[in-house]
């Protein structure tokens, strides 16, 4: 069973991530983590599969990740007992349309770019407490679907600001099983609290989300009595270069400097090349980096214990236009390595 330490839910007998998969598009294929992906395509519109629009293309991408994940787990759709999933599209349609074809029990989740850690945390809580044996957690983002919904048409000519981040065309899926199974153990999860420090610049999401990441990390360290040095890596979701700089500064000021911080948004692409600016973003960014980079490293024993924090910006286009500031959230998942669990 699990017990609470402040905001941290600690699993005495940890559930495990038994299988995982990452799917990505063209830019992800050119990025440094390409080797870790299970599926990559240049055809991000899925024209070869007669996909009619960008929203459905995102569902296609999710399906690729889910199929690869379940194949690795050696199970069929029917054996999934519960699914937590979400995405950036209005009303989370990418995930819901994907679940039409999966026909497993499904709870839609919205956490913007924090969705991977959020669904993972929920899935871990359910498998850890025995409420379900096999739970699927997945999320995605698609550059084209996000751009046309949140910004401007793809054909519109605009110059990106240096703090702008590139929405990843990527998906990540994890299958979780109860304690005692083989896989990467989820040692604890921490649901974050919404933080808003009055950032209004929609082209500087990393700055908007940083306080949420710092807050959740501080809750975690205070609750568990651990220090950053106890981990091989502390990974934030998509703070990008600007948000990462700010996080290091803030944690230093709090007396908890982070010597081993990495940001998924900075790992996914070669920064400074091809319009990426301050790094990657989108729910699929941390999801695909988790599945293509973090989990494999834990599997191979290169890392033994890490914190994985997905960060999300919780505004909508409406609240943005109404002049509201951008609230952020960060959820934290503590991951171990296989030997550690036994």
């Amino acid at each position: 069973m699990a017990f609470r330490r402040g905001d941290v839910l600690v699993f005495a007998k940890p559930p495990v991530i038994a299988a995982w998969a990452a799917a990505g598009g063209k830019k992800e294929k050119q990025g440094p983590l390409a080797g870790g992906f299970d599926f990559l395509t240049e055809d991000t519109a899925f024209t070869e599969e007669d996909c009619p629009n960008w929203e459905q293309a995102e569902s296609h991408l999710q399906q690729k990740a889910i199929d690869a994940c379940l194949r690795k787990a050696g199970i069929s759709h029917k054996e999934v007992e519960l699914t937590f999933a979400g995405d950036l599209q209005a009303q989370c349609t990418a995930s819901s349309y994907t679940m039409r074809g999966v026909q497993a029990p499904y709870a839609g989740v919205y956490g913007a770019c924090s969705t991977m850690a959020e669904t993972l945390a929920l899935a871990a809580a359910f498998t850890g407490s025995g409420l379900a044996r096999q739970v699927l957690a997945f999320t995605s983002s698609h550059f084209c679907a996000a751009e046309r919904q949140f910004r401007t048409p793809l054909e519109y000519g605009a110059k990106r600001t240096p703090t702008a981040q590139w929405t990843a065309t990527a998906a990540g899926a994890c299958l979780l099983r109860g304690p005692g199974s083989t896989g990467i153990p989820v040692l604890s999860v921490t649901f974050g609290r919404v933080q808003d420090y009055a950032v209004h610049d929609i082209n500087n999401m990393g700055a908007a989300m940083m306080p949420a990441a710092a807050s959740t990390l501080l809750q975690y360290f205070a609750g568990t009595g651990t220090r950053p040095e106890d981990f091989d890596a502390i990974l934030t979701g998509d703070l990008g270069q600007v948000g990462s700089d700010l996080l290091l500064q803030q944690m230093e000021r709090e007396g908890v400097p982070l010597p081993n911080h990495q940001d998924c948004g900075c790992l996914l692409y070669d920064l400074g090349s091809g319009n990426v600016q301050a790094g990657g973003s989108g729910a699929g960014c941390s999801a695909s980096v988790l599945c293509a980079h973090v989990l494999p490293k834990l599997l191979h024993g290169e890392w033994r214990r890490v914190l994985f924090l997905s960060t999300g910006a919780l505004m909508s286009q409406t609240t943005f236009l109404q002049g509201e500031s951008i609230p952020g959230i960060a959820h934290c998942v503590e991951l171990g390595c296989e030997e550690g669990a036994k």
Binding site: G25, K26, K27, T44, A45, W54, F143, C144, R148, P153, L154, E155, W166, T169, G274, N275
Partner: peptide, 8 residues
């Protein structure tokens, strides 16, 4: 005549 394309 045209179609929305991925510009990346």
């Amino acid at each position: 005549l045209g179609k929305s394309k991925d510009q990346s």
